[in-house]
């Protein structure tokens, strides 16, 4: 029996169906999931196995059709989208395969915007936000790119900005959806090392979706997803 109060993220019997053609097809089929503080989990599986869907469910970007999701012991699967957004600000950081940086903004502004969205009290003064951004940039060693347009960065540099953005509001969990999917081998290795070291140093929990077996071994545990369920 899972005790949701003991875990950072706890999913119980999660189901998610999608309309495909004329039918309703289950993509996630009754999955149980547990993530504890400092834990790192890789989710592997073939394309279409439901990895990204599961990640969306666990991060509150999507709602399960059935089942329960708990964040720090609190049931959130019935919460409104706006409440989930508010809770997500300082609980979850995202890293995406295609970076999702805002092209009209500079490196600094991308991080600054994320920091501003994460503002929850008046203690976050403009000066503090600026310090946070500078600190995040130094973590990923991109201080000199601060004023550059993100369009001028290489793939590896973009992903480093994305890592800095994921960490800027000091979240408890990092969700990384194939963070090396658009990078070459050298850059992929570099990014994974950076991500894992930052997660470990800052005592974050990590949910990594990847196709790469080598990278999956860097995490504490590996879950294989096939046809919407975990394979033993």
């Amino acid at each position: 029996m899972i005790n949701e109060n003991l875990h950072l993220i706890c999913g119980k019997n999660l189901w998610r169906n999608f309309h495909i053609g004329e039918g309703l097809v289950p993509i996630i089929k009754g999955i149980d999931f547990i993530l504890d503080k400092g834990d790192s989990i890789s989710i592997m599986g073939d394309s279409g196995s439901g990895k990204s869907t599961l990640l969306n469910l666990l991060s509150g970007l999507d709602c399960p059709d059935k089942g329960q999701l708990f964040w720090k012991g609190e049931l959130v699967s019935n919460s409104s989208a706006n409440l989930l957004s508010r809770k997500r600000r300082r609980f979850i950081g995202f890293i995406f395969q295609s970076f999702h940086l805002i092209s009209d903004l500079t490196v600094f502004e991308n991080l600054y915007l994320a920091a501003k969205i994460g503002v929850i009290s008046s203690l976050d003064s403009e000066k503090n936000l600026k310090i946070k951004v500078e600190k995040a940039l130094s973590l990923v060693r991109l201080e000199e790119f601060s004023k550059c347009s993100v369009l001028s960065l290489s793939g590896g540099e973009k992903q480093r900005v994305a890592i800095a953005r994921a960490l800027i509001n000091d979240p408890s969990v990092i969700f990384a959806d194939e963070p090396t999917g658009n990078l070459d081998d050298r850059a992929s290795e570099e990014i994974m090392q950076l991500l894992l070291s930052l997660v470990t140093e800052n005592l974050k929990s990590l949910v990594l979706v990847t196709h790469n077996v080598k990278f999956s071994r860097y995490t504490n545990s590996v879950l294989n997803l096939k046809d919407g369920i975990f394979n033993a």
């Binding site: 706006n82 997500r88 600000r89 300082r90 994320a114 969205i117 953005r165 509001n169």
Partner: peptide, 9 residues
């Protein structure tokens, strides 16, 4: 992305 970062509708 903004929603993922915590923006409300």
């Amino acid at each position: 992305l903004l929603r993922a970062l915590g923006a409300e509708s």
